[in-house]
């Protein structure tokens, strides 16, 4: 892992601009957050294909739906709290139900939004999107995965939610890595415990794995970037080898990646399982680093959770 850092939202501007050059059908609908989402790059290069509908997320999703119905490839961009929270009924009725080719891209998801506090720290979006039939969900961990997911999303014609964060995170993937709907990736092999993580928690999982290795526990880490559909086979085959599992995400521990993995393993191959996630609380103001500590979203909690599941692992 290089220590160079870039935010996943930065990938949004670059990814969309690259897409815009590749295809003239791509349009971007924005709810007045072009600067903070880096969409401004697209707006500057393609002013005719950029629509800022103002502070009106419901309208943004409706407009994106209408654009898709008229044959465009719309990308609707806003902060996660307001895109997913404010416009939920629109996403449900105008995108998911008619199964339209609308990409919903949200930045500023999770607790690491920081100082803005609870209204702006979306911790329920994955749960809300997961339960919508037809919806697909990507949670990239770094700049390159985010960028490649955005650029390749053009190739499918499905409703897709891409969840991006605000802070800078280490560069992990390369510009050539590919990501697929329903995919996941083993980024560290191990035989003793499966750690399923997405987004910023992937890096915490890697740090945890180093510490665990020193104690003789080899962790297998899965980047579960496709939260829906879940890469069930990948997770199950890992858990069948390790016999225990820890899930880590920057989201409420209900209904998101934790819920998805618990549902899948509970039905198919029950093993001792622990979550490292936000414990049914709203966020609050603070620096991203402080909040990550305060909300127990660090490698330490992963190490602790692994210790618990490993002692009772299924053999």
């Amino acid at each position: 892992m290089t220590m160079e850092k870039r935010s996943t939202r930065e990938a949004l501007g670059d990814g969309l601009t690259e897409l815009g050059r590749l295809n003239e059908n791509v349009v971007v609908i924005d709810a007045d957050v072009a600067s903070s989402t880096y969409v401004k790059a697209f707006a500057d290069e393609f002013p005719d294909r950029y629509y800022n509908v103002g502070i009106a997320e419901q309208n943004m999703v409706e407009v994106a739906s209408g654009m898709a119905l008229a044959g465009k490839k719309p990308y609707a961009v806003a902060f996660s709290s307001f895109l997913i929270g404010r416009a939920y009924d629109q996403i449900r009725c105008c995108v998911a139900m008619p199964n339209l080719d609308v990409k919903l891209v949200a930045t500023h998801a999770g607790i690491t939004v920081g100082e803005d506090g609870s209204t702006h720290q979306m911790l329920e979006d994955l749960a809300l999107m997961r339960v919508l039939p037809n919806m697909n969900i990507f949670v990239p961990a770094d700049y390159w995965s985010a960028r490649n997911m955005i650029v390749s999303s053009y190739k499918n014609d499905k409703p897709l939610y891409i969840r991006l964060g605000r802070p800078e995170v280490p560069l992990f993937y390369s510009p050539w890595d590919e990501f697929h709907i329903g995919g996941g990736r083993i980024i560290r092999e191990g035989s003793d415990v499966s750690i399923v993580a997405c987004g910023i928690m992937l890096f915490e999982a890697l740090r945890a794995a180093d510490i665990l290795a020193r104690q003789g526990i080899e962790a297998e880490i899965i980047d579960c970037y496709s939260v829906k559909p879940l890469p069930e086979e990948l997770i199950q085959s890992s858990v069948r080898r390790t016999g225990c599992c820890v899930v880590a995400e920057e989201h409420n521990g209900m209904g998101g990646l934790c819920g998805a993995v618990a549902e899948s393993l509970g039905i198919n191959y029950p093993v001792p399982l622990r979550f490292v996630a936000v414990k049914d609380r709203f966020g609050e103001s603070g620096t991203p680093a402080e909040l990550q500590e305060y909300y127990s979203l660090k490698y330490r909690e992963i190490v602790g959770a692994v210790a618990q599941v490993w002692t009772t692992r299924r053999r």
Binding site: Q58, N59, E62, V63, S65, G66, M67, A68, K72, C94
Partner: peptide, 16 residues
């Protein structure tokens, strides 16, 4: 079916 969305969808269509 969910009220209040048709004009917005129509805007998107009309823009495209």
């Amino acid at each position: 079916g969910s009220l209040g969305m048709g004009i917005g969808i129509s805007c998107g269509m009309a823009m495209a």
